[in-house]
């Protein structure tokens, strides 16, 4: 029983990362129809920003949790203006190539500078230790990751459902051309939305730093799984990204109880089944095109 409970929590922790990452992918895809293959690289950059801030300037975890996402969001907005914008409206293949190329560039640049070996990052003192939850004790920091990611996810969901900008994002996600023909300047919002999506990835990166080693490859390991999560949730669906993130996290970890090999295949098996029976994903409303 204890083992099951621990695995459940581990699943929620993994799910917390999937949710934040796929949320960013979902808003970017929805608004721009670009599948951002560089998303994992920006997650990794978020972690490195936190690491460098600590090493070079003594700036700790909490300020980094704000600074790194903002810095990456800003970099993302510049990138959108300079590069991504140019491939809007052309064959999606160019989007794959551009963002995949970017991720390789970023990864190798970081590898040149920091090497392949992971760098440790200390857990913030306030969240050190473990909490006793009845039968099991679980690391405080990991519980924080679950709660924090859930709070951020719900806040994003709320903003998309209830604010004017969220309404524009929903409308543009569903039908960009119609939305323009109704006088809404969709293109004005693509830059901030792209930045926001990357900011979420960087936030996940900072959260990951104390749990996993900060290394140039940390993003590429995670991103493929995150794509499966996005497909399961439904391309462009906010609700779907959050739900599928936690669902895949929990199912993978619980599956690992039966056989460790299951952990790695749950997401893809789920994706394959879903593509057969419900190609638009759990919450997808987009027509497959």
């Amino acid at each position: 029983m204890d083992f099951l409970a621990i695995q459940l929590f581990n699943g929620l922790v993994n799910g917390a990362f999937y949710a934040l990452l796929s949320l960013g992918l979902a808003v970017i895809f929805g608004m721009m129809r670009i599948v951002n293959f560089a998303h994992g690289a920006f997650y990794m950059l978020g972690a490195f920003v936190a690491y460098v801030l600590l090493q070079q300037a003594g700036i700790g975890f909490w300020p980094s949790l704000v600074i790194a996402p903002l810095a990456i969001a800003l970099a993302g907005m510049v990138l959108e203006r300079l590069l991504i914008r140019r491939i809007a409206g052309v064959d999606p293949l160019f989007g794959f190539l551009l963002t995949f190329g970017l991720s390789l560039l970023i990864q190798d640049a970081m590898r040149l500078r920091f090497g392949l070996q992971g760098q440790p990052y200390a857990t913030p003192a306030e969240l050190a230790g473990a909490v006793s939850l009845g039968a099991v004790t679980y690391p405080t920091y990991r519980l924080f990751v679950i709660a924090f990611s859930l709070a951020v996810s719900l806040a994003v969901w709320y903003a998309i459902e209830r604010t004017r900008l969220g309404m524009v994002v929903r409308a543009a996600t569903e039908r960009a051309e119609l939305t323009r023909a109704l006088g809404v300047d969709v293109d004005r919002w693509t830059t901030p939305v792209f930045g926001f999506g990357l900011g979420l990835a960087a936030l996940a990166g900072v959260l990951a730093a104390p749990m996993r080693n900060v290394s140039p490859l940390m993003g590429s390991e995670l991103i493929i799984l995150t794509f499966a999560v996005v497909v399961i949730g439904g391309m462009g669906s906010i609700k779907g990204a959050i739900a599928a993130g936690f669902l895949v996290g929990v199912l993978s970890s619980v599956g690992a109880i039966f056989d460790p090999a299951i952990e790695g295949i749950v997401a893809f098996a789920l994706m394959a089944v879903l593509l057969l029976v419900r190609p638009s994903g759990l919450f997808g409303s987009l027509e497959t095109s």
């Binding site: 929903r170 569903e174 006088g183 809404v184």
Partner: peptide, 20 residues
């Protein structure tokens, strides 16, 4: 538009509030 241009992710009132 000929297909009426209805969004499935917007409420009735949001349709009215979306345009400038």
């Amino acid at each position: 538009p000929d297909d009426r241009g209805i969004y499935s992710s917007l409420s009735v009132e949001e349709h009215l509030l979306l345009p400038p």
